[in-house]
Design a protein around this nucleic acid. Structure first.
Lengths: 235, 235
DNA sequence: GCAAAAGTGTTAACACTACACCCATGG
DNA sequence: CCATGGGTGTAGTGTTAACACTTTTGC
């Protein structure tokens, strides 16, 4: 059974967030340059320490807000990493989170946070400690989740076109979809509301804008939204 | 960015395991009676403390082995809980694991571990702290995972019958399946090898025994093993 | 011989894949 | 007027869900 509390050793607890973005054609990851000695200047996930009076989700939100200026970001807990020597400086258990943010929203704040940079997801630099594993983990979760949930929308502006949405899913799954099948599947889910406006400037014809239909988004959604042809590695 | 390590507060790190079993007709959960003051005698998950030189998975395995005598148990990390006051004695972050064990295997050891008991999953006592949430979390993960992976087998003896397997899935999903459809789906996955023996004693006719076909179990498996008619709450 | 559980096939609806052409517009 | 990207429909195939009767054998 549980042994007494008093004799147990304590650990530092960190929060590290895998922050995904999308720039219209590629999936992106937001990284920061480590500012302290021991592996200084290595790119790493955005992270910080758990404070005495806060919960994990709360801490992850606080850190994300401090670093990006953004509130109410989609944030979800992933695995916790705790090999004894994962951080050579001192034993640290790290709880990871994955976040989805709209690149445009963030650019406005990027002046503030000095050393943060968006990387193409498939061209990442070497990462600090076990952050590479954390990222592998997160992309899997993103795929699994996006395959069944109306999730990707978090990465797009409020109004978006079907081609944009498709490009996003193609970036997430690193796979091409047939646009007729894609639009049929998406539209039949009832998740989207077609707007009267068209997107201007990008294509000559202009594509209709849609928005997420907040009514149905939570419930009716999850039933048959699976995009991926062959489900390979579900969690 | 990361602040200096030295000024950060540390936490106790606990591991708590949600241990599922199956007795042939009902899904079970293994709980222990808390042995230390402050909520003494409340039923709780099996847990223990992270030791200085071990990783999280390793610690979860060690604790499980100490308490049940079983090795090589299916064990998978779930969420981490860390509200500041979740444990009134002292701030503790708890990493949860879910485990699947064969009830028969465990009964042999149950003499050893004094205060452990199997409960029917749908008739659980009140649980310590936030362990109830941990359990809710775990059953969801079990369902999601079992819907796509050849997972439930961990809960059965090496040789089992289709009716047993179906009963297990019905217990996991708390839902009835059509036996013709069920057997077709399972058998078409190629996961099982039919044996020449029949189970005796339970039914008059006797049901054929099967075993998991270890070749295919990892790969070919995950492609279309979804049993659940309507996927309601996938992670 | 009967009760209790095991085993087995067919059909109709739906969902998925593959595939090609016309449309609207800006330049 | 033409190049670029946007939008749409169908046929074939496979998968799923629903459904009922026969078989075996212990008692």
């Amino acid at each position: 059974m549980l042994e007494l509390y008093s004799e147990q050793t304590k650990c530092l607890v960190a929060l590290d967030s895998i922050i995904f973005g999308f720039d219209g054609s590629k999936l992106k990851l937001l990284l920061v340059k480590r500012g302290i000695e021991e592996s200084k200047d290595i790119w790493s996930l955005m992270g910080g320490w758990l404070q005495p009076k806060e919960g994990l989700d709360q801490a992850a939100n606080r850190i994300l807000e401090n670093l990006t200026g953004l509130q109410n970001i989609y944030l979800e807990q992933l695995s916790t990493f705790g090999l004894p020597d994962r951080d050579p400086v001192e034993r640290t258990v790290s709880v990871t989170y994955f976040a989805l943010i709209n690149v445009d929203d963030y650019e406005q704040f990027s002046a503030n946070s000095q050393k943060a940079k968006w990387f193409d997801f498939d061209d990442l630099p070497e990462l600090l400690f076990d952050h590479g594993q954390m990222v592998d983990n997160a992309i899997q979760r993103l795929r699994n989740k996006a395959a069944f949930h109306p999730l990707g929308f978090e990465l797009l502006p409020e109004k978006f076109t079907l081609p944009q949405l498709q490009a996003l899913y193609e970036a997430i799954f690193n796979m091409a979809f047939d646009k007729r099948n894609f639009s049929r599947k998406i539209l039949s889910s009832g998740l989207l509301t077609k707007l009267d406006e068209k997107q201007k400037g990008f294509s000559k014809k202009g594509a209709y804008l849609y928005k997420l239909n907040s009514q149905t988004s939570e419930k009716a959604a999850s039933s048959n939204l699976y995009f991926v042809p062959s489900i390979d590695s579900l969690v």
